[in-house]
Write a protein that binds this DNA or RNA. Sequence first.
DNA 1: CACCAGGCAAGCC
DNA 2: GGCTTGCATGGT
Length: 292
Amino acid sequence: MKVCIKNNDIVLENVTDFKPTDTFDCGQCFRFNPDNNGGYIGTAYGRTVRITQDGDTVTLHSTTQSDFDSVWKKFLDLDRDYTAIKKELTKGSDAVMASAIDYGKGIRILKQDLWETVISFIISASNNIPRIKKIIELLCTNFGTPHEYEGKTYYSFPDAKTIAALNPAELDVIRAGFRTKYIYACAKSVASGEFELDLLYNMSTTDAKRELMKLNGIGNKVADCILLFALNKFDSFPIDVWIKRIMEYCYFENEPQPIPVIAEFANSKFGNLGGIAQQYLFYYARSLKIGT
DNA sequence: CACCAGGCAAGCC
DNA sequence: GGCTTGCATGGT
């Protein structure tokens, strides 16, 4: 991959294994959306960027070398060799995985902000993706910090102190239902320093998961999503209704299985690439509407 | 009307 | 320990 600066854009040449649609619409993030010109635009780490693609050239519009180096390069996981990962996942002639990878060949696992990911996946519990996105946008437009980008106003994801300082009833505007109390308690805990999110970066997957699950509203599945999408612990394999269905459909002759059985099967089959395998499968399962 | 959505916590036994 | 139930809201 070659990085060039052209006017206010960062242009990446010879980019492989990346398509904005696959990466931003595969269900891992909630704040990137298609613009009206075939690109995607979204906000992360308090900054907004518009991303377009032409063949193997990817352009990050109206940004800086500094933001690319400090934010977007890591966020987009551009240093990782996904060609090698795909090869590893399909060895042993797994036809299902081959189809899933072919369908979602442009997926990269983003490295998202930890605090934002914690709250986003607390919101995700027993919810659907359009409404998760709606609730998160309400959270940001109501309590985030505005900035201008290409002539429009965008909002950062509000930090823990901002949410903790609210009167609890003020959070009702986001319409998160029973999840609101978890969001508020989590913000209080993080803002006070009682729960130190930064410590998770230096923990093993198991330890980080145990810590995360001390927070109300974070159970097994939500913890796995946070481990995968913010900490990039690729040995975690989140199992939601879609993954459960496609795993049963593809590997268990469509017979219902307990989640621990699926988890152990995935661990033995995909090992420390489970999280990436999971995301290919999730995106593929939703495209097929398996079980619905 | 019922049922579901990238589940979880609390209450049972 | 494992199993069941209530939970807010919005869409079909």
